[in-house]
Structures are given as structure tokens and as C-alpha cells.
Amino acid sequence: MAAGTGPVIDPIHQFEVHPIVPLNIGGLDLSFTNASLFMVIVLGVALLLMLGGTAGRSLIPGRLQSMAEMLYEFIEDTCQSTMGSHGRKFLPLVFSLFLFVLLSNLIGLIPGTFTVTSHIIVTFALAAVVILTVIIYGIAKHGTHFFGLFVPSGVPKPLLLLIVPIEVISFVSRPISLSMRLFANMLAGHIALKVFAGFLLMLSAAGGWFALAPLPLAMIVALTALEFLVAGLQAFVFAVLTCIYLNDALHPGH
């Protein structure tokens, strides 16, 4: 194969961040980038759906309003079942996280777009919001009793020497696993799509081999369907885990 003359697809290219409007404040590079642009697009779609869709306050909802209501009732049910009635105060946080992650994932599936959640710093920041909320609310509400979270009741004293560090490690690893799960899912899915797209182009450009080109194409179709599932599922997982962690802040006793 004539290397270099055929089309080349760089599966990493889609994750690159370039400044659109350079902005430098106090030595920090706060440029408005393509990542920022898609965050704004996610926000715009979210507002269109949740504010524009419900502006009519119709008793009989239209399409947008039923979508907004379905999302609301879905997250409300999730909050209710994991946190009980005390969880209502966290509904806006869980809902915003769910909607932001869901729309980022889905908008990222449109070819040519940028996936906001495919960057570890974004998912880590979202996870940090959750964990900081847990810690701050837990200490403000329960004081030192909050640290009872690390001391399971009914465990013999000598065993606590072993259990408490394990509980602390598991608590600390929560934001990492929460952010890693979302980031890795988005990253891997998009890389896989691009890799198979690359196969498709290489086969098409390689003389008689183009007969095999439908194989990666079928793979891309299947993977795209899978990615839609993953996009919704990861947003849901993020929201459910957020609820479970917030439940610790509400009810620290084991």
C-alpha cells in the first residue's frame, strides 16, 4: 500500500482542544475553545428542552414538555428510591449532573462534534462536585458523626484497625472511579468508532480490498448503536452513584 498517499485517520484528533477565542486572565489560559463551545451547546440544548419546552406549562404536554417531564420524573424516582424523601434537596444537583452528562454524551455522538465528557478533567470536576457536596453537607449536618461512615457498627474493635482504612480508601476512590468510568467509556467508544472508520477508508483505497469494506462499515453501525446505549447508561450510572454517595451524607450510619 502506498503509505501516506491514502487517507489517514487519526483516532485521537477528535479529542484535541483548540482555542477559538484566546483569553488569558492572570496568567491562566482561559481561552474559549471548541470544548467550551460544546459545553455552551450542551447548556443551550438543556435550556431549550427544560425551559423552552415547559414555557407553555400545558396541562396536556407537547413533545418537548413530555420529554422534560419524563426526565424530571425519572430522576425524581431515582432520588426517591435511593435517598428517600430527604433526598429532595439534592434533586437539582442530581438532575443537572444527569442532564449535562447525558446531553454531552449524546451530542458527542453526532459526527464532527466534540465530546465534553471524553476529557478526564471534566468528568473529574463533576465527580469532585459530588464528593465535595457529600463531605461538606455531611459534616455540616452531622458534625463528627459523619465520620461514623468509616466505622461500620457491630464490628469487633480489633477488626476496626483493618476495616477503617479500607472504608477510607473506598471513600477516596469514589470520585476517581466515578470520573474514570465515564471518561473511559466515552474515550474508548469514540476511539473504536474512529479506528473502524479508518479501516473502512484504508480498505476502500486499497484496490481489490474494497470488497471487504462493508465489514468495518457494519461494525461502525453496530458500535454507534452500542454507543447510544452507553451514552444513556453512563449518564444514568453517574446519576445513580451520585444519589448513593449523597445518601451517605444524609444517613451516615451504616
Binding site: 483569553l23 489560559d29 459545553m39 450542551v42 470536576a125
Partner: peptide
Amino acid sequence: TFASQLFWLAVT
């Protein structure tokens, strides 16, 4: 890119 991402994430 982290500073810019965090800043715009915080805003949006």
C-alpha cells in the same frame, strides 16, 4: 487545557 476546561465547565 485544564484551566480553560474547568473555567468554562464551572460557567456552563
